[in-house]
């Protein structure tokens, strides 16, 4: 009984984060089967219309329903941030494990590459990669995935270097366990406390980067809505129709803030320190 009543700090973060992220995820999912209005249909009658019963979030400069656009626009944010992190994680796992497990020359080479990538401000390199791979979902997912990979490579490398000389690993090698099995069964589980919060924060940062790229016109292309390009389009109407940017802002904030809260909760649960 006492355990239930006692104030559990990390569960507050997990619940709050879960609710915030849940709202955005729910919208992204629901957009597949239902939208309150056609998000692409322009209508000269409802140009810059204020929020009302017909259009809960109001209408934008082309008379499009902001609610529908926000719901549809949260889809690229969710897809890109989740798949992008998956790519970053896979790349980071591959490079970081190779560097950490083998050491020596491969380690030096891979770390030089990763240092070089980290020497750029993230958004700058993302701009370059997206320009190469192409604007639109695949370009954003792979471009951001490559940019975010080095930080995961680092976690894998450091963790594996710390763990690989432990006795249980030496014994596993001694009885002839193959390196892939050692990595997946014996080493990676030990990295979860560092990885889990880093992954969740990465999702948030990637959502912000995607919004930034779309805002700069280098991400999701108009008229396809995304939270970032809605901010770009709506900015000129800030004075007359602030709702055009307020609602996408709130959605983006929910997603990012929610992910940060989740990561804080996860971190407290695993009791790992750090920023």
């Amino acid at each position: 009984m006492q355990r239930i009543i006692r104030f559990r700090n990390h569960s507050i973060f997990l619940i709050l984060g879960g609710v915030f992220v849940g709202i955005v995820l729910f919208c992204a999912l629901i957009s597949i089967i239902y939208l309150p209005d056609d998000p692409m249909a322009t209508n000269s009658m409802t140009k810059l219309a204020a929020p009302s019963a017909d259009h809960l979030f109001g209408c934008d400069h082309e008379g499009r329903d902001v609610l529908s656009r926000v719901i549809l626009g949260s889809r690229p944010t969710v897809i890109i941030s989740l798949l992008g992190i998956l790519i970053a994680l896979l790349l980071g796992m591959l490079l970081g494990s190779a560097a950490g497990y083998f050491g020596g020359a491969p380690d030096h080479f891979l770390m030089l590459i990763s240092d070089s990538i980290m020497a750029f401000p993230g958004i700058l390199l993302a701009l370059v990669f997206v320009a190469v791979i192409g604007k639109g979902l695949p370009g954003l997912i792979f471009g951001l995935g490559i940019v975010f990979a080095p930080s995961y490579a680092r976690i894998f490398r450091t963790g594996i270097r710390q763990l690989k000389d432990r006795e249980y690993i030496l014994l596993a090698r001694l009885i002839g366990v193959k390196p892939p099995r050692i990595l997946f069964v014996h080493l990676f589980p030990g990295l979860v406390p560092q990885l889990a919060p880093a992954i969740v924060v990465g999702i948030a940062n990637m959502a912000m980067a995607e919004a930034g790229l779309s805002y700069l016109g280098q991400g999701v292309q108009i008229p396809q809505p995304s939270l970032g390009n809605m901010l770009m389009e709506g900015q000129s109407y800030l004075v007359y129709a602030p709702w055009i940017i307020i609602f996408p802002s709130i959605y983006l904030l929910f997603y990012v803030l929610g992910m940060y809260f989740l990561s804080e909760g996860v971190r407290m649960k695993f009791k790992t320190g750090g920023v």
Partner: peptide
């Protein structure tokens, strides 16, 4: 966790 664009706006 405040996205810089949103904060700027």
């Amino acid at each position: 966790a405040f996205p810089p664009i949103v904060l700027a706006l």
